[in-house]
Nucleic acid binder design. Structure first.
Length: 591
RNA sequence: GGGGUCGUAGUUAAGUUGGUUAUAACGCCUGCCUGUCACGCAGGAGGCCGCGAGUUCGAGUCUCGUCGACCCCGCCA
């Protein structure tokens, strides 16, 4: 028999199609075999249509329909028929009609699936092992489809703003700065390696030198670092670069882009400009550079007041360059266990403990109030705007530890007290980052952003004389406390770039070897330029309210960076290694 | 590199102080059933309790190791 040709999909048949003879194709979503009449929910990408097999219509077809099982792939030809009033299914858009099947073709059989597609709590292990089946599930299909639509929105928006999508190489030169590189051995250059791009940073800058003015790319990037719920070794960036621009323009264009993406994925209109906050303000008020501003709960500085008290611990912390900060958990009703739990959770950030004060109608309660004078307590409570029922939670010690633990505490308290509106979309620009930070390991300066970021200082000497005070023309985009992008205005002047390298203790020779082609390009009429990169996966994760970035990636890796389906990475033939002049130090037989 | 949670039929889970034949739901198989859409009814099959040691008369249960998944710290310009 000649194969039937699909005339309609499973989501489109309506009463307007009554009496038409149609052919639908898809998967058997479920079967309800009554012995006499058999009902099949036939599913394809577009929906579900009920197919009816009745011995009165075609005895032989009905006979064969008994053999159908879940996920068989079939073609069903028959007449679109109205359902009687009492058999209409209001849950289905196609629920007022059904196809009375006359001709059935079984296009493929299916083994019993390792899990049921309508099961909502399959372990991720199982989902990843059979990802192609996981992706068959409606929830996953919706995510993948929205991902496509978001990508199209991005291309449409940027095209309308005169951007050109230009591809950059995947096989690149390795540079030791930044994240660990994924390396690819070169067969024709024995002993040499390419690196996969951590981002197309230098190439997009070169495209500005080439005069393309407005570049974008939806591009895979690779970083060989440990994974997290929001971090994959390969991920997708929306990479953007603009010539003759400034930070404001980059932010404006990005805001327009984000609003379009939100409209596409989530359906909502975001009004007004995104908020902006300086890096210093973010650190001081929220303890981190990506604060979740869906709720207030600011961190207050008590170093002055508490550091000058008679409480020896606070006193010595303040004298040795430490800080004392606190948040006010309003009307918290914490039990002693709650406080202990929070204290334990802070330990991972290096906090040695968490002092607290309970505010009651009768006065303050805490193991530490006896160390403070009434005046000091009054001053602290005034700063904290304490009211009966509140809990004041302290962090004291090294600034980095206090900030990290109070930033965590702020989120933990926000969640416990239900201060967070789960439906809010709070976009925030964080600006005025320091140019450099000290590497805790070796004490050397390193770029907070990357070494091509333009400093905002007027005097280039500041870069080497007081580098830690220099602010950069960089900006991060934060959504609900998640960093979804970042960028900067770049250095387009060779002298300035050399000064930055000097501040980073990258010598002329080293700079020449690693970035010589960029330095050279800057000498040939490089226009002022800047841009940013947005984390496409993270944006989708946030907008689709997924727990993990893996849920918006078709074929993600596990935390150990392996693919449970294909079992990558794997050993390779010894022959392959020899061809590449490689020998593994691992205790494996690569035969 | 470190901390934590978890691993029991195909799936998701229960499993008492260590004690008879390891439960349940869904799925699967067989039969019956002409209006179901979470179809129904009757019956049935299905287990390396992740893996390996140890303790014990006896281990799904306790101990150690190991493998894997997840969350976090470090790391991620």
């Amino acid at each position: 028999m000649e194969q039937l040709r699909r005339t309609h999909n499973c989501g489109e048949l309506r009463e307007t199609n009554l009496d038409e003879t149609v052919t639908v194709m898809g998967w058997v979503d479920s079967r309800r075999d009554h012995g006499g009449v058999i009902f099949i929910d036939l599913r394809d990408r577009w929906g579900i249509t009920q197919v009816v097999f009745n011995p009165d219509i075609n005895k032989e077809t009905h006979e064969r329909a008994h053999t159908l099982r879940s996920e068989f792939v079939i073609a069903a030809q028959g007449k679109v028929t109205a359902r009687s009033e009492e058999t209409i299914n209001e849950k289905l858009p196609t629920g007022k009609v059904e196809v009375y099947c006359n001709t059935l073709q079984i296009l493929n059989k299916s083994d019993v699936l390792p899990f049921q597609l309508d099961d909502t709590d399959i372990t991720e292990n199982n989902r990843l092992k059979h990802r192609y089946l996981d992706l068959r599930r409606k929830e996953m299909q919706e995510g993948i489809i929205l991902r496509h639509k978001a990508a199209k929105t991005i291309r449409d928006y940027l095209d309308a703003h005169s951007f050109l999508e230009i591809e950059t190489p995947i096989l690149n030169k390795s540079t030791p700065e930044g994240a660990r590189d994924y390396l690819v051995p070169s067969r024709v250059n024995e002993g040499m390696f390419y690196a996969l791009p951590q981002s197309p940073q230098i190439f997009k800058q070169l495209l500005m030198v080439s005069g393309y003015e407005r570049y974008f790319q939806i591009v895979k990037c690779f970083r060989d670092e440990d994974l997290r719920a929001d971090r994959q070794p390969e991920f997708t960036q929306i990479d953007i670069e603009i010539s003759f621009t400034n930070a404001n323009e980059v932010m404006e264009i990005t805001e327009g882009l984000m609003k379009n993406i939100v409209k596409t994925v989530d359906g909502r209109d975001i009004e007004g400009n995104f908020k902006r906050i300086s890096w210093h303000e973010a650190m001081n008020k929220y303890g981190c550079d990506k604060p979740d501003l869906r709720f207030d709960l600011e961190i207050k500085d008590l170093t002055e007041i508490a550091g000058n008290s008679d409480f020896k611990i606070f006193n010595s912390i303040a004298k040795s360059g430490g800080i004392i900060k606190a948040i006010n958990a309003k009307q918290a009703e914490f039990s002693r266990k709650d406080l202990d739990d929070l204290t334990n959770e802070l330990a991972v950030y290096g906090a040695k403990g968490m002092a607290w004060i309970k505010v009651t109608e009768e006065g303050l309660q805490s193991p530490i109030i006896k160390f403070f004078s009434q005046e000091t307590l009054d001053q602290m409570m005034e700063v904290m705007e304490a009211k009966p029922g509140d809990y004041i939670l302290f962090g004291a010690g090294k600034p980095s530890i206090v900030h990290a633990s109070l930033a965590y505490l702020r989120l933990a308290v926000g969640k416990r007290l239900n201060l967070i509106d789960e439906n809010a979309l709070n976009f925030l620009w964080v600006t005025d980052f320091p140019m450099f930070e000290k590497d805790e390991e070796n004490g050397k300066l390193k770029s907070l952003h990357h070494p091509f970021t333009k400093p905002l200082c007027t005097d280039l000497k500041d870069l080497t004389e007081k580098p830690e005070e220099v602010i950069s023309d960089a900006y991060d985009l934060v959504l609900n406390g998640c960093e979804i992008g970042g960028g900067s205005i770049r250095i387009h002047n060779v002298e300035m770039q050399k000064e930055v390298f000097k501040a980073l203790k990258i010598g002329d020779e080293e700079a020449q070897e690693k970035f010589g082609f960029l330095l050279e390009a800057l000498r040939f009429g490089a226009p002022p330029h800047g841009g940013l990169a947005l984390g496409f996966d993270r944006i989708l994760m946030m907008l689709l309210k997924k727990e993990s970035i893996r849920d918006v990636i078709a074929f993600p890796k596990t935390q150990k960076a392996s693919c449970l389906m294909s079992e990558a990475p794997s050993r390779v033939d010894k022959k392959q290694l020899i061809e590449l002049s490689l020998k593994s130090l691992a205790n494996l037989d690569n035969e």
